[in-house]
Design a protein around this nucleic acid. Structure first.
Ligand SMILES: [Mn+2]
Ligand SMILES: [Mn+2]
Ligand SMILES: [Zn+2]
Ligand SMILES: [Zn+2]
Lengths: 145, 145
DNA sequence: AGAGTATATGCAAATTATTTGCAAATAGCG
DNA sequence: CGCTATTTGCAAATAATTTGCATATACTCT
């Protein structure tokens, strides 16, 4: 799971962005490149430290666009702030976080195959377009302490 | 799925709370009773309107305790604010929300059976204690509009 | 390449969400 | 009932997210 960050170049992200009919801007490229350097979902607060040239409002607005375009995923773990990670270049996945120390790791379990069952059980819905899935546990160091 | 709110009395919630070695207070009983009247996860902002006698700080702190005690679940759907729902009196479940209109419905699909696989794929973790799972889709009215 | 238009960004301010300190109130225990 | 650990109210701090508006920029068309 995870690891092996392809670290593509900005041009390549430009193509990815354009293909979703989202405007390719300097900031969006910077944001996606910054995210590509992260191994785990990062909060906007932390991202501002990595993309200094980008105003915080722009971060919020750009990430919103990128999430809509499915180039980035928004993840809710502990704490009130959302975190973000690239959703291209690495396989779709989810996370597990230690409730004691906050450690986060990727996990490759997914529920996409359950979407059909979801639709069967909720006749009010016509389709499933996305899902969020996060596990919480206790990491080994915390368990043996 | 869902529906059929047992609407138990405060005494009964008192026992549930005590059984988790959490102090039984007037506010906690009021909060759990208020939650028992909700069909869907509710934000703290909305909950303050239902539990007028309870200070907002108390709501935050009480809900934190109740979540820790697993009597309440915290749910992240659209928007920045967390929502809360009782986690007793009705079976463990998750939700699906329409990305167009915000409609929320309960879903009985779950991933508990995948926890073992999660542990196998993340050797750094000793146990899984919880998970969050939410689906997003398009409801039929929105789909045919 | 240049003009025109829709969209993005900076900046400051507003709003919303959550957390905290501390004194007073209360629950649980004997 | 009296004691002690917790909880609560209140006000204030902090954190997170959103918004208005003037300016800058991306993309389309010529
Ligand atoms: Mn990840
Ligand atoms: Mn529910
Ligand atoms: Zn998935
Ligand atoms: Zn579940």
């Amino acid at each position: 799971m995870s690891q092996k960050l392809p670290n593509r170049d900005a041009v390549s992200y430009g193509e990815a962005i354009r293909s979703k009919s989202v405007r390719v801007t300097k900031h969006r490229l910077l944001i996606m490149t910054a995210l590509s350097h992260e191994r785990l979902p990062i909060s906007i607060r932390d991202l501002t430290k990595k993309v200094r040239s980008c105003n915080e409002s722009t971060l919020y607005r750009s990430l919103e666009s990128l999430v809509d375009a499915q180039l980035v995923r928004r993840v809710h773990l502990d704490g009130a702030a959302a975190r973000y990670e690239l959703s291209i270049d690495r396989p779709h996945h989810h996370h597990i976080q230690c409730v004691r120390c906050g450690l986060i790791q990727d996990v490759d379990i997914c529920v996409r195959s359950k979407e059909e069952a979801v639709l069967r059980s909720t006749p009010a819905f016509a389709s499933v377009v996305d899902h969020s899935l996060e596990f919480f546990g206790i990491c080994k160091p915390c368990a043996s302490r």
